[in-house]
Design a protein around this nucleic acid. Sequence first.
DNA 1: AGTCCGATTATCT
DNA 2: GATAATCGGACTA
Length: 196
Amino acid sequence: MFERRPLEVAPALLGWRLRSEIDGEAVEAVITETEAYEHAGDPASHAHHPVDGIRRSERNAAMFSAPGRLYVYRSYGIHWCANVVCWPEGEPGAVLLRAVDVLHGHDVVERRRPGRRSDRDRTGGPGRLCVALAIDGDHDGIDLLDPGSSIRLAAPAAPLPADRIVAGPRIGISTAAERPWRFGVRAHPTLSKPFR
DNA sequence: AGTCCGATTATCT
DNA sequence: GATAATCGGACTA
Protein backbone atom coordinates (compact mmCIF):
# COMPACT_ATOMS: atom_id res chain seq x y z
CA MET A 1 0.00 0.00 0.00
CA PHE A 2 2.67 2.55 0.98
CA GLU A 3 5.60 1.26 -1.04
CA ARG A 4 4.65 3.38 -4.06
CA ARG A 5 4.46 7.02 -5.03
CA PRO A 6 2.73 9.50 -2.71
CA LEU A 7 0.56 10.62 -5.63
CA GLU A 8 -1.06 7.17 -5.64
CA VAL A 9 -1.10 6.72 -1.88
CA ALA A 10 -2.75 10.08 -1.12
CA PRO A 11 -6.20 9.35 -2.64
CA ALA A 12 -6.01 5.68 -1.59
CA LEU A 13 -5.55 6.74 2.04
CA LEU A 14 -8.96 8.43 2.19
CA GLY A 15 -11.27 6.30 4.30
CA TRP A 16 -8.41 4.67 6.24
CA ARG A 17 -8.57 4.79 10.00
CA LEU A 18 -6.04 6.58 12.15
CA ARG A 19 -5.99 5.62 15.79
CA SER A 20 -3.92 7.13 18.59
CA GLU A 21 -3.67 5.84 22.11
CA ILE A 22 -1.62 8.33 24.09
CA ASP A 23 -1.63 8.93 27.85
CA GLY A 24 -4.21 6.15 28.09
CA GLU A 25 -6.68 8.07 25.92
CA ALA A 26 -7.79 6.56 22.62
CA VAL A 27 -9.05 8.47 19.58
CA GLU A 28 -10.01 6.80 16.33
CA ALA A 29 -10.74 8.78 13.17
CA VAL A 30 -11.31 8.38 9.43
CA ILE A 31 -8.92 10.17 7.07
CA THR A 32 -10.86 12.67 4.94
CA GLU A 33 -8.18 14.89 3.35
CA THR A 34 -4.58 14.31 2.21
CA GLU A 35 -1.80 15.89 0.16
CA ALA A 36 1.01 14.23 -1.79
CA TYR A 37 4.63 15.39 -1.43
CA GLU A 38 6.64 13.72 -4.11
CA HIS A 39 10.14 12.64 -4.90
CA ALA A 40 12.76 14.47 -6.89
CA GLY A 41 10.97 17.01 -9.06
CA ASP A 42 8.62 18.30 -6.38
CA PRO A 43 10.05 21.63 -5.21
CA ALA A 44 7.45 21.82 -2.41
CA SER A 45 8.78 18.67 -0.74
CA HIS A 46 10.91 19.00 2.38
CA ALA A 47 13.33 16.53 0.75
CA HIS A 48 13.76 18.74 -2.33
CA HIS A 49 17.05 20.44 -3.08
CA PRO A 50 17.51 22.77 -6.07
CA VAL A 51 20.97 21.45 -6.94
CA ASP A 52 21.06 17.88 -5.69
CA GLY A 53 17.44 17.08 -6.51
CA ILE A 54 16.87 15.59 -3.12
CA ARG A 55 18.72 16.05 0.13
CA ARG A 56 18.47 14.40 3.51
CA SER A 57 18.59 16.51 6.66
CA GLU A 58 17.91 16.03 10.34
CA ARG A 59 14.33 17.22 9.99
CA ASN A 60 13.34 15.25 6.91
CA ALA A 61 15.17 12.00 7.79
CA ALA A 62 11.90 10.14 8.43
CA MET A 63 10.85 10.82 4.81
CA PHE A 64 13.64 8.46 3.76
CA SER A 65 12.57 5.72 6.17
CA ALA A 66 10.41 2.65 5.52
CA PRO A 67 6.93 3.02 3.98
CA GLY A 68 4.16 3.24 6.56
CA ARG A 69 6.24 5.22 9.04
CA LEU A 70 5.20 8.59 10.48
CA TYR A 71 6.94 11.85 9.55
CA VAL A 72 6.14 14.74 11.91
CA TYR A 73 7.45 18.28 11.50
CA ARG A 74 6.81 21.69 13.06
CA SER A 75 5.06 24.25 10.88
CA TYR A 76 5.34 28.02 11.39
CA GLY A 77 7.10 27.34 14.69
CA ILE A 78 3.72 26.49 16.22
CA HIS A 79 1.88 23.56 14.69
CA TRP A 80 2.73 19.90 14.28
CA CYS A 81 1.93 18.22 10.95
CA ALA A 82 1.72 14.46 10.40
CA ASN A 83 2.64 12.53 7.24
CA VAL A 84 2.66 8.91 6.13
CA VAL A 85 5.97 7.92 4.52
CA CYS A 86 5.83 6.36 1.01
CA TRP A 87 8.18 4.75 -1.53
CA PRO A 88 10.63 1.96 -0.65
CA GLU A 89 13.05 2.80 2.16
CA GLY A 90 15.68 5.30 1.05
CA GLU A 91 13.39 7.15 -1.39
CA PRO A 92 11.88 10.29 0.17
CA GLY A 93 8.15 10.94 -0.17
CA ALA A 94 5.15 11.37 2.07
CA VAL A 95 1.45 12.08 2.29
CA LEU A 96 0.38 14.93 4.56
CA LEU A 97 -2.73 14.15 6.62
CA ARG A 98 -4.90 17.27 6.39
CA ALA A 99 -8.22 16.28 7.98
CA VAL A 100 -9.93 13.44 9.81
CA ASP A 101 -13.44 12.64 11.04
CA VAL A 102 -13.58 11.38 14.63
CA LEU A 103 -15.31 8.02 15.14
CA HIS A 104 -14.47 7.24 18.77
CA GLY A 105 -13.07 9.42 21.54
CA HIS A 106 -15.13 12.57 20.96
CA ASP A 107 -14.82 13.33 24.67
CA VAL A 108 -11.02 13.20 24.48
CA VAL A 109 -10.99 15.51 21.46
CA GLU A 110 -13.34 17.90 23.23
CA ARG A 111 -10.91 18.05 26.15
CA ARG A 112 -7.94 18.71 23.87
CA ARG A 113 -9.73 21.28 21.72
CA PRO A 114 -12.53 22.70 23.87
CA GLY A 115 -15.49 24.68 22.63
CA ARG A 116 -15.21 24.04 18.89
CA ARG A 117 -18.46 24.57 17.03
CA SER A 118 -17.85 22.51 13.87
CA ASP A 119 -16.09 19.34 12.78
CA ARG A 120 -13.84 21.39 10.57
CA ASP A 121 -12.85 23.50 13.55
CA ARG A 122 -12.10 20.36 15.57
CA THR A 123 -10.15 18.14 13.16
CA GLY A 124 -10.04 19.89 9.74
CA GLY A 125 -6.47 21.05 9.09
CA PRO A 126 -3.08 19.41 9.63
CA GLY A 127 -2.30 21.24 12.87
CA ARG A 128 -5.77 20.72 14.32
CA LEU A 129 -5.67 17.01 13.54
CA CYS A 130 -2.40 16.64 15.45
CA VAL A 131 -3.79 18.36 18.53
CA ALA A 132 -6.94 16.20 18.46
CA LEU A 133 -4.92 12.96 18.25
CA ALA A 134 -2.07 14.27 20.47
CA ILE A 135 0.56 13.75 17.75
CA ASP A 136 3.81 15.69 18.21
CA GLY A 137 7.52 15.59 17.43
CA ASP A 138 8.07 12.71 19.83
CA HIS A 139 6.20 10.48 17.39
CA ASP A 140 8.41 11.27 14.39
CA GLY A 141 9.53 8.03 12.74
CA ILE A 142 7.21 5.57 14.47
CA ASP A 143 5.80 2.63 12.51
CA LEU A 144 2.09 3.18 11.83
CA LEU A 145 1.65 -0.44 10.75
CA ASP A 146 3.00 -1.97 13.96
CA PRO A 147 0.15 -3.06 16.28
CA GLY A 148 2.34 -2.05 19.23
CA SER A 149 2.63 1.60 18.16
CA SER A 150 0.76 4.36 19.95
CA ILE A 151 -0.42 5.67 16.57
CA ARG A 152 -1.65 3.20 13.95
CA LEU A 153 -3.27 2.98 10.55
CA ALA A 154 -5.95 0.49 9.54
CA ALA A 155 -7.49 -0.16 6.14
CA PRO A 156 -11.21 0.35 5.60
CA ALA A 157 -13.46 -2.64 4.92
CA ALA A 158 -13.95 -1.35 1.37
CA PRO A 159 -12.02 1.34 -0.50
CA LEU A 160 -13.74 4.68 -1.02
CA PRO A 161 -15.45 4.81 -4.45
CA ALA A 162 -13.60 7.02 -6.93
CA ASP A 163 -16.63 9.27 -7.44
CA ARG A 164 -16.49 10.33 -3.79
CA ILE A 165 -12.92 11.65 -4.15
CA VAL A 166 -12.12 15.18 -5.25
CA ALA A 167 -8.71 16.64 -6.17
CA GLY A 168 -7.34 20.17 -6.18
CA PRO A 169 -4.21 22.27 -5.69
CA ARG A 170 -2.18 21.89 -2.51
CA ILE A 171 -2.59 24.48 0.26
CA GLY A 172 -0.10 26.92 1.71
CA ILE A 173 2.86 26.30 -0.58
CA SER A 174 4.62 28.79 -2.83
CA THR A 175 6.24 26.54 -5.44
CA ALA A 176 4.48 24.03 -7.72
CA ALA A 177 1.25 25.42 -6.27
CA GLU A 178 -0.72 24.50 -9.39
CA ARG A 179 -0.30 20.72 -9.09
CA PRO A 180 -3.65 19.12 -8.11
CA TRP A 181 -2.11 16.91 -5.44
CA ARG A 182 -4.61 17.54 -2.64
CA PHE A 183 -7.35 14.94 -2.23
CA GLY A 184 -10.53 14.89 -0.15
CA VAL A 185 -13.80 13.11 0.46
CA ARG A 186 -16.32 15.03 -1.65
CA ALA A 187 -18.24 17.69 0.33
CA HIS A 188 -17.13 16.29 3.68
CA PRO A 189 -17.75 18.62 6.67
CA THR A 190 -14.21 18.19 8.03
CA LEU A 191 -12.42 19.50 4.91
CA SER A 192 -9.94 22.21 5.89
CA LYS A 193 -10.88 24.18 2.77
CA PRO A 194 -13.51 23.53 0.09
CA PHE A 195 -12.50 22.13 -3.29
CA ARG A 196 -13.64 23.98 -6.39
C1' DA B 1 -18.45 34.47 4.08
C1' DG B 2 -14.23 36.67 3.02
C1' DT B 3 -9.90 38.91 4.17
C1' DC B 4 -6.06 40.39 7.02
C1' DC B 5 -2.60 39.77 10.45
C1' DG B 6 0.31 38.24 14.37
C1' DA B 7 2.16 34.24 16.75
C1' DT B 8 6.67 31.55 17.35
C1' DT B 9 10.80 28.56 16.37
C1' DA B 10 13.38 24.87 13.89
C1' DT B 11 15.58 24.77 9.88
C1' DC B 12 18.46 25.95 6.13
C1' DT B 13 17.13 27.37 -1.10
C1' DG C 1 18.60 36.37 8.87
C1' DA C 2 14.61 34.77 6.25
C1' DT C 3 11.50 31.51 5.75
C1' DA C 4 7.50 28.30 6.52
C1' DA C 5 3.06 21.83 3.89
C1' DT C 6 -0.94 26.91 9.73
C1' DC C 7 -4.25 28.69 12.95
C1' DG C 8 -7.39 31.67 15.29
C1' DG C 9 -9.02 36.07 16.28
C1' DA C 10 -10.45 40.49 14.52
C1' DC C 11 -12.34 42.91 11.30
C1' DT C 12 -15.48 44.21 7.20
C1' DA C 13 -20.27 44.04 5.35
